[in-house]
Every structure is written in C-alpha cells, then in structure tokens.
C-alpha cells in the first residue's frame, strides 16, 4: 500500500506541480493516474521511488516513510518503467533487463536466465537479447522497459506512460499483456497515462488529476462513469458530450450497439448474461 499525505511539490522555479495530494494506493491492484499533460502525474509517480522529494507532506510504503529510506536501496526494490523507455544505449537488451539484478549482486548466470524468462513474460523474442536498444522498434523498447521493471520481482511497479510511443494496435496488445502479467504476478501497479480510455481499461482504480496537481476524482471506472464529480471530470471522460452514451438498435436481425451518431461500435452479445467483472 502506498500513501500520499498532504503531498506538495514546488520546483525551484516556482512551479507547483503537485498541490496537497492525499491518496491511498491499495496493494496488488492497478491504480491509474490520469490527467492532461503537465498536471503532475510524473512528479507524483517519481516521489514514490524518491527520484523527486516532496516539498511538503509524506509518501509512505506499507506505513514506512520513504523519506527515511536510502534512495538507492529503495529504487532497487521498486520497478520503474519510464516515459520514453529510458534504456541504457550502450548495453544489450539482456543487460538492460538484468541491470537491477546485477546491482543487487545476483550472480551473472542466474541474472541472465531470469532476464531471458522475463523476455518471454513480455513476449519479446529471445533472439533479441544481444541487440542494442537502438536496434529495436519503439514497442520492443517499451517491452524491454517493462521487463526491466519486473526484473527484481518488485512488489511495486511504477509505469509512466509506458505505451505512449507505439501505434494503437501494438498499444492494445501491450495493454492486454499488462493485464495478463498483473493477473499472474499481482503487483501493486501505479500506471500513468493521459488517455482516459486506457485508464478505464487498465485501472482497478482511477485517479483523475487536474492542472495544478490536485485530484479531481478517484474511484473505480464504473463509479467515475456513473457519477462524474463535476463538469471537469465529465468533460475529461467525455460524458458531457455524450461520447460515452451507447444505445442498442435492431438491424438485420442483430442487436447492434451504436454511439450517439448512430455509428455501430459493437454487437450486443445476447447469449451472455450481463456481468460486472470487467476481465
């Protein structure tokens, strides 16, 4: 469990990126921080592994104030997938994945074996192990980033727009894989995105941030969809424009789900009873 209490961050130039955030991130769930560019998502995320120290307030993990922990040790036990991958250009894919293991003094052979396993986990061909980051596609690089984040088997995984640089098809694939990995490994995942659809797809809980670094609303996707806290949230999730309103129409003997412009978006599955489980 990660807790933010009265957390504020003002950068030396006077920008207040995060302003008095109280937030509890439950263990073993995916919590998505979502908001438009510059609203403080990255700042908030990086305070968990002390890449940034808060100006005021405390961040704690399982009741322990991270401010009292050694940053280097803390970072070695938290997985962090950076915005833009953040791979080391002079190290091979496998070396990048095993960096944290090697820092934690896991013997080389053992680290290599684990690294190759992780490549399977994120569906990267093992044949790519000896390549360098520059020789990979954007999507492959992001998979390497995810594998590296998972390498030391951390309880907490911080992911900062990890699927930002890929096309929609690869993105959908990576999202599915993340859900699969989460089902298998049940990590506490804090996931940052500015895409509300991605937030609703992945998040057990979604935290919507507003410019200036304050929380506009938090809850499950269903809660937020059902009761947007205010106009800002309604606008952000597209509820006010009717984007989220779907209807069922009968066409050619099938029941088709259409959006507000009567454009078909799917087929109503008559044989399956409605269920609340999203997965």
């Amino acid at each position: 469990m990660i807790e933010f209490e009265g957390v504020r961050k003002t950068y030396p130039d006077g920008t207040t990126a995060v302003d008095g955030i109280d937030l509890t991130i439950p263990a073993r769930e995916i919590t998505v921080l979502v908001g438009s560019s510059g609203c403080g998502k990255t700042t908030l995320l990086r305070m968990v592994n002390r890449m940034i120290d808060p100006t005021a307030g405390t961040v704690s993990i399982d009741g322990e104030d991270v401010g009292s922990l050694d940053p280097v040790r803390l970072r070695r036990r938290i997985g962090y997938v950076m915005q833009n991958g953040g791979l080391l250009p002079h190290r091979s894919v496998l070396d990048n994945i095993t960096t944290v293991l090697r820092l934690n003094r896991v013997p080389r052979a053992q680290a290599r074996a684990r690294g190759l396993e992780l490549m399977d986990t994120v569906s990267l061909d093992r044949g790519l192990a000896s390549r360098y980051p520059a020789q990979l596609s954007g999507g492959q690089q992001q998979r390497v980033g995810v594998a590296r984040g998972l390498a030391s088997d951390p309880n907490i995984l911080l992911m900062d727009e990890p699927f930002g640089a890929v096309d929609p098809i690869v993105r959908a694939e990576l999202q599915r894989e993340l859900l699969r990995v989460h089902r298998e490994l049940a990590k506490t995942i804090v996931f940052v995105t500015h895409d509300i659809d991605e937030a609703f797809l992945l998040g057990d809980r979604v935290v919507i941030l507003r410019t200036g670094g304050v929380i506009a609303q938090q809850g499950t996707p269903a809660e937020i969809l059902a009761h947007p806290a205010d106009d800002f949230v309604a606008g952000f999730i597209g509820a006010d424009s009717g984007q989220r309103r779907l209807r069922v129409v009968e066409r050619d003997g099938a029941r088709i789900v259409v959006d507000r412009h009567d454009r078909p978006v799917g087929l109503l599955d008559a044989d399956t009873p409605a269920h609340s489980d999203r997965r």
């Binding site: 091979s92 496998l94 399977d120 192990a129 000896s130 390549r131």
Partner: peptide
C-alpha cells in the same frame, strides 16, 4: 545486429 559481449542464445521463443 549482434552484440560483441553476448552470444546469441540458442533457445527459440520461450515456451512460457
């Protein structure tokens, strides 16, 4: 495309 420090692993795409 091959690095100098690592041999290409013989294992094909994993069984996992």
């Amino acid at each position: 495309t091959r690095g100098r420090r690592h041999r290409r692993p013989a294992t094909p795409r994993g069984a996992a």
